[in-house]
Amino acid sequence: MMQATKTKTNGVIEGYVAREPKITIDGDTAMIEAQNVYYRNVNDAVRQVIADGAKTVKLLDINGQRYIGTGLRAKGVKIEVNGTAGNDMAMFMDGPAVEVFGNAQDGVGNTMNAGTVIVHGDAGDVLGYGMRGGKVFIKGDVGYRVGIHMKAYENHVPIMVCGGKSRDFFGEYMAGGMLVLLGMNSQFEGPLVGGYLGAGMHGGEIFLRGEVEPWQVGKECGIFVADEEDLARLRPVLEEYCAAFDMPIDEVLSVPLTKLVPISHRPYGKLYVYV
């Protein structure tokens, strides 16, 4: 019976209305009023105003609408999200800069190719899954499975910095790029990060502000203290991060950083015998 009810409403999720949002254009800035507007209409409007030449898109009253910036190939475009961004924001995104004034839900930067995402709040699970390039900066805490299978390729080097704490599986299967966890802007009780940290890691590097217990770390990782060379690579990233959230970089660097890197690029190279 549920199916029948859904069909009648064209599959629109309860609480949202499939209607065109109100759009105000001011020069190359477009303002989209998204309150209760179904995600398809919101994202259609975003694509439309960008196609019409908008360079800045302001989304007002976002309340869980999914797929903001998903699949967008628009370098130089800035999307400002006011409210709580829904799942899979900036998924497959290639170019734009998205800034969220609020929290973000799951899947931010999923399989993202290029661009930047800044979240002035917390974010959910599975951030940056399979991310290949661009930057994701989260001010606060993040959930489970963050940075899974991030990968680098030539000049595509994905970077994710999370300012708070993280749950389990941080950087699992990581194949490339840089993943940073600061543990500073946190509402979580308990440790900096959960277990299975970097499990199955075979590329890239993870930096943690503070220490981790060996039991938390996947057996494929080597645990080091970040040295001068590492910090030289990190500093510009952290400077950009601190600028985004108006944080003092000295405080970020006041605690030694732990570095995790894979022991092997081929963790399972010796697992098999050929028949």
Partner: peptide
């Protein structure tokens, strides 16, 4: 594939953004 030469290309057993039918719908 957009991955470095010589490293194993590892596909995780599940999609880590799909743990349910609802997640599949999302993808």
């Amino acid at each position: 594939r957009m991955i470095p030469t010589g490293t194993d290309a590892i596909s995780p057993a599940p999609h880590h953004d799909i743990y349910s039918i609802e997640d599949l719908r999302q993808l």
